[in-house]
């Protein structure tokens, strides 16, 4: 069997994270599928390697603190994304802000109401409320309101897939034809994955969707604590 001292260490665990991500990127590029998210490859690879080497999952997570730390800088970096799209915001400031605020309120309130109806625990509500927001922001929000960040991360990605897959059909059904509205809807509901789909619809849709990712993050960060303090969650 394999000697554990060669794998039970930080370099190996970091190498596993970066290597599995690179493999995911490579497979995505080769397949040419926009919806083949790299983590669909990375996660099974990490699980498999941990199983084969007999390393506990907790050790893996502990060794990857360095990677976790980068989530903060990731969130701050989104400021540049907002800056790059400042012209679109300036031109449609009021409508974009109102639409994103609506989306954000609907996102938080619908999670609360639906979860209560289906009898889910509070931990589900707290972890799911930020689910329409891009993962690093969602995890920050989840942590600050007392949710489970792992459950949030998985929910965010699931939400992204659902939005990206069902988005074009929903937009058609409700006769949403304006390019700005389409982009905003895709980005607000399904963050990065929705944006990948919006880019295929057109240049305006793609740009607006990218912008909606950051705006939705800010708006939800404002609304979420207000909403929860009113309901004393």
């Amino acid at each position: 069997m394999m000697k554990t001292e060669f794998v039970m260490n930080m370099p190996f665990m970091l190498m596993l994270t970066i290597g599995s991500y690179l493999l995911g990127l490579w497979v995505k590029k080769k397949s040419g599928l926009a919806l083949l998210h790299p983590f669909l490859i990375s996660i099974p690879v990490i699980i498999m390697v941990l199983k084969v080497t007999d390393v506990p999952c907790s050790f893996y997570m502990e060794s990857n603190r360095l990677i976790d730390f980068m989530l903060g800088p990731c969130v701050v970096s989104l400021g540049l994304l907002l800056y790059d799209h400042r012209h679109i915001i300036r031109r449609n400031f009021l409508s974009i802000m109102s639409a994103v605020m609506t989306g954000s309120v609907v996102g938080v309130a619908s999670v609360y109401i639906l979860s209560r109806l289906m009898g889910l625990d509070d931990i589900f509500i707290l972890s799911l409320e930020p689910k329409s927001v891009t993962t690093p922001i969602a995890m920050e929000l989840s942590e600050s309101i007392g949710g489970n960040i792992s459950l949030t991360a998985v929910s965010v990605v699931l939400c992204g897939f659902i939005g990206a897959v069902s988005g074009p059909l929903c937009l058609q059904l409700f006769r949403i034809k304006s390019p700005v509205a389409k982009g905003l809807a895709m980005g607000s509901a399904a963050h990065g994955l929705g944006t990948a789909r919006a880019v295929e619809m057109g240049a305006i849709e793609g740009a607006v969707s990218g912008l909606a990712i950051a705006l939705m993050g800010v708006m939800t960060a404002l609304i979420l604590p207000l909403f929860n303090s009113i309901l004393s969650l």
């Binding site: 009021l94 409508s95 974009i96 109102s98 639409a99 994103v100 609506t102 989306g103 954000s104 609907v106 996102g107 619908s110 999670v111 639906l114 979860s115 289906m118 009898g119 889910l120 589900f124 799911l128 689910k131 329409s132 929910s155 699931l158 939400c159 659902i162 939005g163 069902s166 988005g167 929903c170 937009l171 409700f174 949403i176 034809k177 304006s178 700005v180 509205a181 389409k182 905003l184 809807a185 895709m186 607000s188 509901a189 399904a190 929705g194 909606a212």
Partner: peptide, 24 residues
């Protein structure tokens, strides 16, 4: 229940955001 909440909520956000933007 977890998957149902995410599906319904995501679709609701998508439609409401799109409709408000288009109306305005």
């Amino acid at each position: 229940a977890w998957i149902a909440v995410i599906i319904l909520s995501t679709v609701m956000v998508l439609i409401s955001t799109g409709i408000v933007q288009q109306l305005l």
